[in-house]
Design a protein around this nucleic acid. Sequence first.
RNA 1: GGAGAGGUGGCUGAGCGGUCGAAAGCGGCGGUCUUGAAAACCGUUGACUCGCAAGGGUCCGGGGGUUCGAAUCCCUCCCUCUCCGCCA
Length: 424
Amino acid sequence: MLDPRLLRTELDEVAMHLARRGLVLDQARIEDLERERKQRQVEVESLRGERNSRSKAIGKVKGAGGDIAPLLAEVADLGARLATAETRLDAIQGELEQIGLELPNLPDPSVPDGRDERDNREERRWGEPPSFSFEPRDHVDLGAFNGWMDFDLAAKVTGSRFVVLSGPLARLHRALIQFMLDTHTEEHGYKEVYVPYLVNTDSLLGTGQLPKFAADLFKVPGERDFYLIPTAEVPVTNLVRDLILDEGELPRKWVAHTPCFRSEAGSYGKDTRGMIRQHQFEKVELVQVVRPRESLQALEALTGHAETILQRLGLAYRVVSLCAGDLGFGASKTYDLEVWLPGQQTYREISSCSTYSDFQARRLQARWRNSETGKPELVHTLNGSGLAVGRTLVAILENYQKADGRIQLPEVLRPYLGGQEVLG
RNA sequence: GGAGAGGUGGCUGAGCGGUCGAAAGCGGCGGUCUUGAAAACCGUUGACUCGCAAGGGUCCGGGGGUUCGAAUCCCUCCCUCUCCGCCA
């Protein structure tokens, strides 16, 4: 959510920033609503002020044993007048609130201009895509060849866009998770947390998935509706919802491994082959809660933490700064990490690292007490994949394949796989 | 699934329908004392919002109701805790 004060006082500027995202703000409508809101609010508050002082006076008279009947007559219609005024004010406020909840965050000034992914700016590359003396296969062929990956079985058990991994590949999958968690906790200063995979609507409103993106979520109806998490960002970031943190408690840095569930509504034709786009996948997620002045710096650091995993695994990748038009709803700045996939002869997203500035914090009411001002202020929140495990598995298979279809293992994973050098 | 208790400020925890935005304690901040610190003592300390200010308004789990007036009464929903049962 944007700062409502900005919306009131700097609407032109807000519109300008949102225009970078390709969003046309209906300024006239907001101004009209705002004007009426102000008028109604003044009306309601003066009526309430009158009611309060009258009631207090009645209380005093009654306490002193006086006759309150004439006073009661004077305020006879006050309640009704107040009620109608309040109803009108509520309607306008509700409308403004709805608009506010569906407005995306403002892009950081350092974010490149542009409309879509074609305008994203490549920041740097690391590593060389491997060259093969044979025609490299993609992960689907490799998985099937070794008998480790079965989409038909998953389709029987559940449906499309799920997978069954077995034997050595299932173990490699688990090893990747362990490796990532160990690296982030032991070397990057994150605290590991285990969190619920089902969350309530408050949490999803807090991080911005609701109300706008309900179609992307799996809902679990019940006495009380829950949703399967689309990312650990939701339960982990919500750890600070409704808190006022002491300055000494910042920054908070958490890492969590969770499954993620996405309905992938609206992407029916995309990446239908293989493990790239599934309804269920594992992710190791990094979350930081920081003081506002530190958030851009923290984004660089967090991105670096995710990069470390790719580097240790020896996977070639590039870092892309998303342009304003390609930014996610709540992000003010995002770096995507894209790993080289020989099967597709291209770089594919494997991590997305973002700062949300105070956008999520405002919805979450996540604050810290500034020791200089003594006042509570909104924190900044960040998160990034470190990394998407399924896609990392794909990258290992494709980049480390040998001519005979077997998979060489990166050094760092071997301790997690009983010292094997080759998978299986 | 059965039985009960409870949701109040950063935290713990009081609160006859009227002067309660709310006692007290803790914590925080400032000070006295001290070479410094601790302890002790004194003072101070909710959040949000409108306003240049004075000042106004809102907030005691959410929503609705009764009333001139609700933290306090009624309805309803949600949540938390305890005991029993079942269970990974």
